[in-house]
Write a protein that binds this DNA or RNA. Structure first.
Lengths: 100, 100
DNA sequence: CCTATATTTGACAATTATTGTCAAGTTAAT
DNA sequence: ATTAACTTGACAATAATTGTCAAATATAGG
């Protein structure tokens, strides 16, 4: 499966846009976008929304990929990650979230 | 399923310990522990380790519960949370993590 | 009821993590 | 060798998390 960064870079190049162009629309330095595309940094949630629009990427699939990477990042050093994911999934399904 | 906070409070009371006692061992103010037990704040990962020892709680199950709450917190405003969880699960299973 | 002790609450301070800029360094194509 | 695009790394700004403190509420005995 393609990473968020790969998706972004592919689409940007396919559209013939430069880092300079896209980063200007996002109002950030090209350095950050470069890092995002190479997976060295994470985009913010808001940047993902804008990028989907700017690059005309299917929003849902981009967000799903982005969120899953965020989750994996949280669990990267955890042996019990899979079990935690399963518990989270069950909880979310039964709508038992009581976060504030 | 019991929340992390509920597990902690139950065990502390069962052991007849006061917030004061446990929070001293954790080297934090009782206020924070109170909030953690009531789910108003999250414990740190390290505090979870210490709490499992201090309160003699099965470490694995406590960590799984704790991590799953952390994940759910990340996804609390996301419509696509479940899908993201599923993608994350698949990725973790195939050991394709390339986070740095 | 009085008062001791335990817990809770909320304002805000300290700390840590994330997000950003900038300038200099590569890379690649003339 | 120039030039344009991108990358790198040091560090600044901002935002989120974690903590303290003091006052407010319970809770339980005399």
């Amino acid at each position: 499966m393609k990473t968020t960064g790969e998706i972004l870079r592919e689409r940007r190049e396919k559209k013939g846009m430069l880092l300079r162009h896209v980063s200007a629309l996002l109002d950030i330095d090209t350095a950050i976008l470069s890092k995002i595309e190479r997976g060295e940094r994470k985009a913010t949630r808001e940047q993902i929304n804008r990028l989907a629009e700017i690059l005309e990427i299917d929003k849902e699939s981009l967000i799903i990929q982005y969120l899953s990477e965020k989750i994996l990042y949280e669990l990267k050093d955890e042996d019990l990650g899979i079990q935690a994911l399963k518990v989270a999934e069950k909880t979310i399904k039964y709508g038992v979230t009581k976060n504030k």
